[in-house]
Design a protein around this nucleic acid. Structure first.
Lengths: 347, 347
DNA sequence: CTGTTAGCGCGTTCAA
DNA sequence: TTGAACGCGCTAACAG
């Protein structure tokens, strides 16, 4: 009794009709009489029929699964974006096929190919930091599969892009440090070839400029987004009075800096004020609590889902860029008084 | 030029052979001459052929995608298990279709059905806390799809189970507290209907017993695995001298307890010593750093992958239970001296 | 070593 | 309102 799956043919001969009728009935086709429709539904449920979506999408050319490629699944931000996407896709009967690129371009390329082989109905992608060539997306656009980029995006690939307002985040963080008296603010950036880090950096520079502070290239550290790098970089900058503030583009490097500063007996926020980015779960738990820029990952996910569902049938995909607002959460690492209100009224 | 995907038929007529030959060549079948094989490969690459895995598995009855259902993807433990699984599956050309149950039985049921509809070649599951009925797995076993449970498991479903050594973790944590002088140790458990929490609780009781301490039911708090519950529960127990130690089955409730204790000006580890479970990323960052039981999530993932790959063809699935070792990481929340060595030589 | 034939399960013509 | 026939792209049985 095992092994054989029940097909529409089974349920057809069970009730003396043809598979076509069953197929139509299950699809809710109006052209089949209400009573047969109901009977089909009943029998289907009764015998435990499970539609074979492989056969279905092979025949129809449509697919009910969406592919998604993220750098890493175990990042707070990405896993929450995924949750947001699923929150809309699942109720609509769509599945999500998730792959990780592990921040490697080659893995990203393979993942995209694999998704194409699986004939997914759409692709959602956030590029790995390594990714510099985008040829592997040519086939995606050639086959007119909706392609949506988020967070780590590039204009070398067509289609909609959904991004955090990184510029705003960088600007607000820097302004916050300035308002709290910082004059020499270092910036730990990621790779400036990646849009998110480039934009945070731009926001930082803009805020400095607006405040009449000169940008000092010696206070910029690139590729500094992990804890170890943050610790290493801060030990070279701090202690000499060279800096009194740090805007890190990553909570992880900010964390490394904080731990190293404590080790060096440099007071936070007394001597150096620190802010991070992404509001990782640990940020409010470290001592002192780390100020950080909160991204609305879940909302980003729902927007992505909305976009992809809206474009699955269509042939031309609109070329828009959607910005999701971010907000700075001030904590003890960057100020000591009551500043929340002030932040809101910045500018 | 868009829209039409290249098929084996295309490349067949391109080189004047039949689709069968192309199919065999691409499969690396020895029965086709080396030179045609090479020619096929060359043409395939040349025209950018992407195999249609839907058609392939519809025809062959085999599937190259594995389904996985976890309670939540944004838990450190689960996302690392996923990484471990992918680390073996991807190189083998297998895909992973991930779903979340959000700790709801109904979602878990839907997810399993959806995987069956997608004709996955195997299913990996960790049950939601809510899940008490397991009927939805009958079809899985009836259709002889390899089914592997991990972490949250039940013997009501057949097939292999891969679990952490929760008993050992509970025992070691409690022993550790006892060795550090605790006499009245509270336990924050999860739902005792869930194997992992039941086993941690058993380990706790066992350690108490071996040390000649009596288990006091009033020191057991069930369903206490989130931060808020931990805070609430500790405020009722601490401060009266009723307890001098806490073994929490979750780092989150341990965190809640720590924060509340600090608020109550109760010294940690001076007056109350605390240990948690799962070694969440934040555990080493809180103040005082939280002692916790580390689970080897990645290794668990690789073991799962190994098992499922080994069973994909087979008809009978071995009924084994594999235990992944865990280890206690002592930190400042539970001791002040040098105890690492002592822990290793326990028992 | 290669071609022919058939069919996986379903959806969609075209007729009736 | 229903049935008959065909084919999505691929693999597998049987020939030769």
């Amino acid at each position: 009794m095992a092994k054989h799956r029940i097909t529409i043919t089974d349920i057809a001969k069970e009730m003396g009709v043809t598979p076509s009728t069953v197929s139509r009935a299950l699809a809710g086709n109006e052209r089949v009489s209400l009573k047969t429709r109901e009977r089909v539904m009943a029998v289907a449920k009764d015998v435990g029929y499970q539609p074979n979506v492989l056969a279905s999408s092979l025949r129809s050319g449509r697919s009910d699964t969406i592919g998604m490629v993220v750098p890493r699944i175990n990042r707070h931000f990405f896993s929450n974006v995924i949750s947001g996407v699923e929150a809309l896709l699942n109720p609509a009967g769509l599945n999500l096929l998730i792959s990780q690129s592990h921040e490697r371009m080659e893995d990203e390329r393979k993942a995209v190919h694999s998704l194409l082989s699986n004939r997914v109905g759409g692709i959602i992608i956030s590029h790995s930091v390594e990714t510099s060539s985008f040829d592997h997306y040519n086939e995606v656009v050639a086959e007119e599969i909706p392609l949506i980029q988020f967070d780590r995006v590039t204009d070398k690939v067509p289609g909609p892009r959904i991004v955090n307002d990184n510029f705003l985040g960088g600007m607000r963080s820097t302004q916050h440090l300035i308002k709290n008296g910082c004059k020499r603010i270092a910036h730990f950036a990621g790779s400036l070839h990646v849009n998110v880090y480039q934009e945070r950096f731009e926001g930082y520079k803009y805020a400095l400029e607006k405040a009449g502070l000169e940008f000092d290239p010696s206070l910029l550290v690139e590729n500094c987004i992990i804890q170890e790098e943050g610790a290493r970089a801060i030990s070279e900058l701090a202690g000499t009075g060279k800096i009194d503030g740090l805007f890190a583009a990553s909570d992880f490097s900010a964390l490394g800096a904080i731990r190293k500063l404590k080790e060096m007996k440099i007071a936070i926020p007394g001597e150096v004020k620190v802010t991070g980015f992404a509001n990782e779960p640990f940020s409010e738990l470290v001592d002192p609590a780390l100020s950080s820029v909160e991204q609305n990952a879940f909302e980003m996910g729902t927007q992505i889902a909305r976009l992809i569902m809206g474009n699955m049938g269509k042939q031309s995909i609109p070329e828009e860029e959607i910005h999701i607002p971010v907000r700075l959460i001030p904590r003890q690492s960057s100020y000591s008084g009551e500043l929340d209100k002030m932040i809101d009224s910045d500018f």
